[in-house]
Nucleic acid binder design. Structure first.
Lengths: 135, 135
DNA sequence: GTATTTTTGCAATAGTGTTGCAAGTTTAAA
DNA sequence: TTTAAACTTGCAACACTATTGCAAAAATAC
């Protein structure tokens, strides 16, 4: 599984990439750099984690989630991942209780009518509230 | 104008608050902390700018805009500001060309149907593309 | 005008992210 | 299977972003 994804994206198979990709595959929600650093412990250098995450974003294996605090959240979305690249037009949900961020793969970002003069390219939507686990 | 807003929110009137609030009033788009520091130059300490922005957010004079890089963007939205507090349910637009962020006060964030178990509280939407100035 | 409350500036600290380079690992090809 | 080329990693250094405590200064209230 992990190997397939790396090879499909023409990436060298290294311990760091395998481990970090596994974290995303076995983790429901989104992850921040700090989460990954905690979970991998002393295994890799901070810089390696940063570079691995950037590589994955460039290849479209994971994608960024917009937030209002100054944190960068990354998530792998199962459906798109298989296809090798992301459409990433789904809504993200951040739980006010457990703070977990979830990709709602089945909820598509709705179209909005913009004022005259504005041309849309991409739209992101983040909903906060109470998630299924915390209800 | 500036004084009205500060008094309405029960804030002491200081040089820093007046100057920063003016920046928002005379600036179309959103501002990051770094923008404000550049525009105020040596007038105030960085810490004062941080604290002023936090105070304004708490009082609802300005609000945060979600981004995918790790930057915090602040914007004052004319309509709500007059009322003393924000509804902040409008769409934000980030121009791919000039990178300016605009509040589309007249475009409301649409409702979406969430999966069973999820209860929404607040929704944010950010659209990227080409703005009116850059078209 | 003075006392009280609030805000500011400074110094120190912590967190976040990037770059250059040498050493190490992976890949591909003989 | 060995070797050479390409790529990735770790380290050190650096830059930027943000927060806290405390004393001095300013604003408000009386």
């Amino acid at each position: 599984m992990v190997l397939d994804i790396l090879k499909k994206n023409q990436l060298s198979v290294t311990e760091g990439r395998k481990k970090i990709l596994e974290l995303f595959l076995h983790n429901e929600g989104a992850l921040a750099h700090a989460d990954i650093e905690k979970k991998t412990g002393e295994m890799f250098d901070r810089v390696t984690v940063y570079r691995t995450l950037n590589t994955f974003v460039e290849k479209g294996i994971i994608h960024l989630i917009p937030t209002t605090d100054n944190s960068i959240l990354y998530a792998l979305c199962k459906d798109n991942c298989e296809a090798g690249h992301h459409h990433d037009n789904h809504v993200h949900f951040i739980c006010d209780v457990c703070n977990k961020t979830t990709c709602l793969d089945e909820v598509t970002v709705p179209e909005v009518k913009l004022p005259i003069g504005f041309t849309p390219n991409h739209a992101e939507m983040v909903v906060t509230g109470v998630c299924d686990d915390c209800k």
